[in-house]
Nucleic acid binder design. Structure first.
Lengths: 142, 142
DNA sequence: CCTCCTAAGTTGGCTTTCCCAACTCACACT
DNA sequence: AGTGTGAGTTGGGAAAGCCAACTTAGGAGG
């Protein structure tokens, strides 16, 4: 039997390898240079090279030259890359709740002033999108 | 330099390996048996064995015996496992938008009747938690 | 009783990835 | 001339992954 066709699997094909998401986390933090990403993630430089190439090829990052002499580069987020922030946010929330021991390494403040407690809601009604509140829509493919 | 301490990294330690999230996806779909998970994810059986053991050890899944004679098992979600649904949801959303070609393999309907368009919001004010609306809170550790 | 079947892994052998440290290259700085 | 920095490359060994076949423990059919 062929494995299930699924957007989660498709997404993981692109950003599901080890270090990819952590590299993106660094870019979100503004650490856009190779050495910064390597140091802050702990990825080995050769693997990081491959991951960054793949992320650029996938349209998640763009490689920017910010100096001609000497040639120096920065990695910037595309729209697709920026859209991954929600994924990171959910990982962070889950890690905060179920994995991280002791004080949280990072706490976000929302522009409303409160400490961020993220919730996933339905854009249409604003109610939370819980596991129980979801069903397969009729237009789903077989 | 030591890599950054981060709940995203911690979360990925637990569920970031290949096949882990896809195995969980299957359990969310109600495919709780080894062979179903293997067939629907495409993971090789030996790797899947290791992943499931790790997920059980991490408290994300529980192994249930549903028949004594012959011994048969099912994997069930714990609270921590159920909490990962948001992560899957965000991956699905991102994959739907930026990776999957053609018709979406799965569309969710929210209990309000609308097709689900998930949004991440601040639980306090209900406004969207965009990248720009977030800042590092003062209580964040160094 | 003998054979086939299912569930849930195990095992062996091979291939691919990963990790680490050291090295390169191009340029600037002093 | 020598040192430093950014951005990778390279080589070699260790670990993980993949596949197909095998096992174990017990039904079900004839």
């Amino acid at each position: 039997m062929a494995p299930r066709s699924c957007s989660v699997a498709n997404a993981l094909e692109v950003v599901g390898e080890r270090w990819s998401l952590l590299a993106l986390r660094e870019v979100f933090f503004g650490n856009t240079r190779f050495d910064q990403i390597a140091a802050n993630t702990g990825a080995s430089r050769d693997v990081l090279t491959v991951r960054l190439k793949k992320l650029v090829a996938a349209g998640v990052l763009e490689k920017h030259q910010y100096s001609d002499h000497p040639p120096r580069h920065e990695y910037h987020l595309t729209d697709a890359g920026r859209a991954l922030h929600n994924v990171l946010l959910m990982f962070k929330e889950w890690g905060d709740t179920y994995v991280t021991q002791g004080p949280l390494p990072l706490v976000y403040q929302h522009s409303c002033g409160a400490v961020l407690e993220p919730r996933v809601v339905c854009a249409h009604c604003g109610e939370e999108a819980t596991l129980e509140s979801l069903s397969r829509a009729p237009e789903s493919a077989a």
